[in-house]
């Protein structure tokens, strides 16, 4: 494969061998190397230090660094499994792997549950869902009266909270999303199937023999 040595790729904080990352995820070695090109691009948008900070992550999502967004922040925090406040390359690949079209459905269900369990109690509570609805309204042109929001919450919890204890546990969430599969649409990124096409320059920086890939 590629034979142009990359400059200091191994000097990136948290850089991990593509072969090692490919073995842990759905990605091939070539796909991991292509993701490194994406990682570098996002991670150098504000401060070029070889990691992705929250500002850079939000900028990549919104193309506007001033935007604060509850959901983008929540996804960043879930990607940041080591709670360092920044994403290194390994964090980035292992988190994106869950969004691969071929990743296990169960992983997608668990990740989406954590996404909505804002305070990490192991339950999605009504107040959390209301907060997220209000955040959504804040970022869109949509306006809803409080009584309409409450009616939406009533309907949602009637359907999802099957034991009617006022909160949704993982088992209830599992059943709910299987009945409402569109809720998992955000958990799959078709782009990840074509990542090597999207970032073909990875070939020029590859450090891995074609045979290993």
């Amino acid at each position: 494969m590629g034979c142009v040595p990359s400059k200091g790729r191994r000097q990136f904080p948290g850089y991990e061998d593509p072969v090692f990352l490919a073995a842990q995820t759905t990605f091939s070695v070539s796909e991991v190397e292509a993701l490194f090109e994406l990682f570098k691009s996002i991670g150098s948008s504000v401060i070029d230090e070889g990691i992705i900070n929250k500002e850079e992550f939000v900028l990549a999502l919104f193309k506007n660094r001033k935007k604060e967004n509850l959901f983008a922040s929540r996804i960043f925090d879930l990607f940041d499994v080591k709670h360092k406040g920044v994403l290194d390359f390994g964090d980035f690949v292992r988190a994106l792997h869950i969004f691969h079209p071929s990743a296990p459905l169960e992983d997608k269900i668990v990740f989406s549950f954590k996404l909505y369990d804002l305070d990490n109690t192991g339950f999605i509570e009504r107040q959390e869902v209301k907060l997220m609805l209000l955040a959504l309204l804040g970022e869109s042109e949509m306006k809803l009266a409080d009584e309409t929001i409450e009616a939406i919450l009533d309907k949602t919890f009637l359907e999802a909270d099957t034991n009617q204890d006022g909160k949704i546990d993982l088992s209830e969430w599992h059943s709910f999303v299987l009945k409402n599969p569109s809720l998992l649409r955000i958990m799959t990124l078709p782009y990840l199937r074509d990542i090597t096409t999207a970032f073909p320059s990875f070939v020029f920086y590859s450090e891995v023999d074609e045979a290993a890939a």
């Binding site: 919104f62 997220m132 609805l133 869109s140 949602t156 955000i186 990124l189």
Partner: peptide
């Protein structure tokens, strides 16, 4: 669809902040 016909999570999932495909747009 009118919001009342959707559940809360269907609405929330429309947030741009949950749309990671934007990461791949150059």
């Amino acid at each position: 669809a009118a919001p009342l016909t959707m559940n809360a999570f269907e609405l929330i999932s429309k947030s741009q902040g949950l749309n990671l495909s934007s990461l791949f747009e150059k």
